[in-house]
């Protein structure tokens, strides 16, 4: 009975998907392998690094610490869902690009998803709040300063939009 797949219906970046998955598979693998959304990265696969962060019904979550079948009925946004159809970057993407908030960029999708949730709930966070909220995302390259700069740039860009 272990090998049985079970049906899963979820919405990813606005598109409905109905697929069959093995219950043991985590959401990140299903996004990457079954839906070819390889922007969600896997670093540690046990919840520590934050590279796999996606939005589940608007809230940031580790896609490696969720069985795909737990996403039944959920709306999911991944890094691929941020830019407009014409390729115009989301303001947080544009800001991080401008501030050069990455080196190898392996961690970047996770930081972007965490930052989007942060700025939605708190549009003008202090530097301390930014560091606190992003403490669950690890970066092996930048030393974090350029990432904090990127978030602060995003605050400015998004503030001037309003």
């Amino acid at each position: 009975m272990n090998d049985l797949t079970i049906p899963l219906t979820m919405q990813v970046n606005g598109t409905d998907h109905s697929i069959d998955v093995e219950p043991r598979r985590h959401l990140a693998d299903v996004l990457r392998e079954d839906l070819a959304l390889t922007g969600t990265h896997l670093g540690c696969e046990h919840g520590v690094c934050g590279a796999c962060t996606v939005l589940i019904d608007g809230e940031p979550a580790r896609a490696c610490l969720m069985l795909a079948v737990q996403a039944e009925g959920s709306e999911i946004v991944t890094i691929e869902g941020l830019a407009d159809a014409d390729g115009t970057m989301h303001p947080v993407q544009a800001a991080m690009h401008q501030a050069m908030s990455f080196q190898c960029a392996f961690c970047t999708p996770g930081f972007l998803m965490s930052t989007i949730a942060l700025l939605r709930d708190n549009p003008s966070p202090t530097t301390e709040e930014i560091r606190e909220e992003l403490s669950g995302n690890l970066c092996r390259c930048t030393g974090y300063q350029s990432i904090v700069d990127g978030v602060e740039t995003a605050v400015e860009l998004m503030g001037s939009d309003r």
Partner: peptide, 9 residues
């Protein structure tokens, strides 16, 4: 308790 992405689940 952990981080925000842990606490949301």
């Amino acid at each position: 308790v952990g981080h925000r992405a842990i606490r949301s689940r």
